[in-house]
Write a protein that binds this DNA or RNA. Structure first.
Ligand SMILES: [Mn+2]
Ligand SMILES: [Mn+2]
Ligand SMILES: [Zn+2]
Ligand SMILES: [Zn+2]
Lengths: 138, 138
DNA sequence: CGATTAATGCACTTCCATTGCATTGATGTC
DNA sequence: GACATCAATGCAATGGAAGTGCATTAATCG
């Protein structure tokens, strides 16, 4: 049994062929991907299956969505420690305005945010737009 | 001539009836609004006109879009100092998970963010999700 | 006023999310 | 292994919102 299969089972998700493929694709790519990008990776893939695969992954703490402000959500593997109960992705997300790639900067945690009295925080989302390393050399 | 008309002219935008209405609606409401929400405010309004009105406002530094992670962009009036050249909205945005309203917290500027070497920042987007004052009493 | 340019309204297209339903595949029981 | 059961998949269809082309109307200027 592959490492991925073991991981999925540990997350209580049945390791079907498509799920393994999707997981591997995300693991191999450092950047987050949209559903359409994922779809393009496979010759014969049904959009709906992909959609539901991602939903399942999201529900079980395997991937988290990233809303980088460009309309279409992207998805990346979660950090360790995520589970069905609560995602644990309080890191910074960087979106490159040139190559359009969005990446998790897991080492860069989100700073403490002060809110006006009466407001309570449940989740924080920090997106930085700019130029990534690869594109900065231009 | 109304204050709104004067303001729009100063921004180099011709103050048509619809533009004045849209501006007033946004000014009267503390929360940001989607196009559909705006559309619902008017009996007879064409979605395209609204769409282009907002695009124009965006272009001339009158409104800024807020991507609160719920798929559909919302719009709010800019702070003073925005113009065609560059928006100037480096404040925090708060989205209430209960009433679903999104507001600008213009007093809460976005903190300095450190990035890995090689990355350059052009824009930062900080969204806090939680419960707003109104909803916190429940 | 007549000419010119901007704004509007309507029709249409496209993209993506989402759902219903029939079909296929896996799992566990006898 | 055959069968019952439940999960996953594939296909078709729906729906919401963004975006565009073009004809019409409104504003502006000489
Ligand atoms: Mn991430
Ligand atoms: Mn704002
Ligand atoms: Zn880049
Ligand atoms: Zn609220």
């Amino acid at each position: 049994m592959s490492e991925i299969e073991i991981f999925l089972i540990a997350k209580k998700v049945r390791p079907t062929a498509m799920r393994i493929l999707v997981f591997r694709s995300l693991a191999n790519k450092r950047a987050a991907m949209t559903l359409s990008e994922l779809e393009a990776l496979f010759e014969k893939s049904d959009r709906t299956t992909l959609y539901r695969t991602i939903k399942t992954f999201e529900e079980y703490g395997i991937v988290h969505p990233i809303h980088d402000g460009n309309g279409i959500p992207k998805y990346a593997l979660c950090e360790e420690g995520c589970d069905c109960a609560a995602h644990n992705d309080l890191h910074l997300h960087f979106h490159c305005n040139q190559c359009e790639e969005t990446v998790c900067l897991t080492d860069h945690k989100i700073p403490q945010i002060n809110l006006p009295r009466g407001y309570t925080t449940e989740d924080v989302n920090l997106i930085v737009n700019g130029k990534c390393v690869k594109c900065s050399s231009d």
